[in-house]
Design a protein around this nucleic acid. Sequence first.
RNA 1: GCGCCUGUAGCUCAAUAGGAUAGAGCAACGGACUUCUAAUCCGUAGGUUGGGGGUUCGAUUCCCUCCAGGCGCGCCA
Length: 554
Amino acid sequence: MSRLITEILREKIEEVLVMNFPGMVEEKEIAVEPTREKSHGDFATNLAFILSRKVNKSPREVAANLQLSLSESLQDFARVEVAGGGFINFFLEDKVLFSFIQEAEGEKEDFGAINLGRGKKTQVEFVSVNPTGPLHVGHGKCAAFGDSLSRILKKAGFQVEKEYYVNDVGRQIDLLGASLEARFRQLLGEKVEIPEEGYQGEYLIPIAEKLLQERGREVLDLSPPERLEVFRNFAVQNILDNIRCDLDDFRVHFDVWFRESSLYQGGEAEEIISLLQERGYTYSKDGALWLKTSNWGDDKDRVLVRENGSPTYFASDIAYHWNKWKRGFQLVIDIWGADHHGYIPRMHAAMQALGLPQDFLEIFIVQFVTLLRGGQPERMSTRQGEFVPLRQLIDEVGVDVARYYFLMRDPATHLEFDIEEAKRQSMDNPVYYIQYAHARIASLFRETQKRGITPLPLTDSWSGFPTEQEREISKKIAYFPEMVGRSALSRQPYLICNYLQDLCGDFHSFYNLYRIIDEDNMELTSFRLGLCRAVQIVLKNAFQLLGISAPDTM
RNA sequence: GCGCCUGUAGCUCAAUAGGAUAGAGCAACGGACUUCUAAUCCGUAGGUUGGGGGUUCGAUUCCCUCCAGGCGCGCCA
């Protein structure tokens, strides 16, 4: 388990506060963050600004008063200075930073693991694409985000399960079955059209061929309900297999595939409706049953049971989330495509109606990918059959590039992804920039091995940081566990990407500035190799969080 | 019409729960490989943070308003 520098600083600040200003400031009001400017030290706190309001003194004065006790309390850890209008700056002791290099070396793949989540039972549900067609590029963005977020939460001490919700009932599935039947008949030479609202994509043709091969044309002799059932199931199963295969190749693996139909088979869809009725949040109007979602901020109330007696998708979705709750999850994270954002208020309202804790459900919206090809935007719609499959993107640019492009930005923002450009500029692609750092370090160790150099143990090779560059890099290493925490808390994998660009920038500069292997100075060489080793460990661990590979050669 | 997201350098984006002098990459220009991987590095240039108000020690960040773009507003899923 890794230590967090800001945690340590906070503890010390707390101690000083209890002594000097008991009960005056809440801990969450206090910010302890890295500084941007070197002259401001390594970390800084706004403590004095917060306190000044309460004690009616200038921030500068408050800071000056605190300086002495903070200095004493942080002895051997950091030097304390007051600057600006009242900032309190911390200058970490070099040996504290050095200890993190040792820690990385010692913990290896566990370096960066923290206990922020305290084993909280968490579910991340994502992708959950209707099994009516192949995954396209937009789904890839959801997949990369959900998967990476899960990995980060795990690293931060949450107990995480990844789930895919399969919408295998309803009109769309009937249409899918009918579309497959049309393709099937076309194979047999019949002149039939695919239903107007059906699925026109050619991906159903091989599935129809497979069905013909397995079951023969006798399928058509079945009674209409039986026949539809066969086509439906066959289509769903095969499309799901394809989806699973695409996801596998994209390095996304789900723990649970949950079928919507199981909610109906288990009677849970009906159950949830009675439950909501009992709680008194429903009413009948126009022959339908409504849930009073407007009680909790939705624009209007929503239908649970249609006039014709069948439950809506909304009803089964509530049942699904109730099921998650019953499975014991304390935190559920849903990742949805942007076209579902109008659905969020009613879902939160439903959770309230069920009396679930406010923070039980978190919903994240992933904005669409604007896919460009030579500057021309491409629309993605499963129904029209004109889409760019995720498979094609993987084949064209590779998994590492695709995942990284999706992850390097806040998923809530629109992403422009020009396939041609990603291919053409693949040489100065950001993902290669960071992987190159890893490969360079690997190469260093191949070189030392070739020359028969055995570095001294880290402790024996260290006598302070040779230059500012090594200190800066150590600081970034020491900050990695912190990044894991920030990224987990804010549910933002892209913070890891920014961090990596930063760390690798420092490393590449360092590498160009100094010769690392110098056989005439084994002490210095050993320290620098140790530092590189720690960088490599951090890179490898961070890449793992993003699901990209850590190449030894490029 | 209502709701959500977005607006920062020519382009793509940062700015770490309101922090100190708004930073990177690409594109442009000028430099660095007989020595550990030049997929790299160093330097130059580039800004009224969409406009206008407000909140306070401090605003790219929060609030109001206007402008521009994207998405959504079914007893579809």
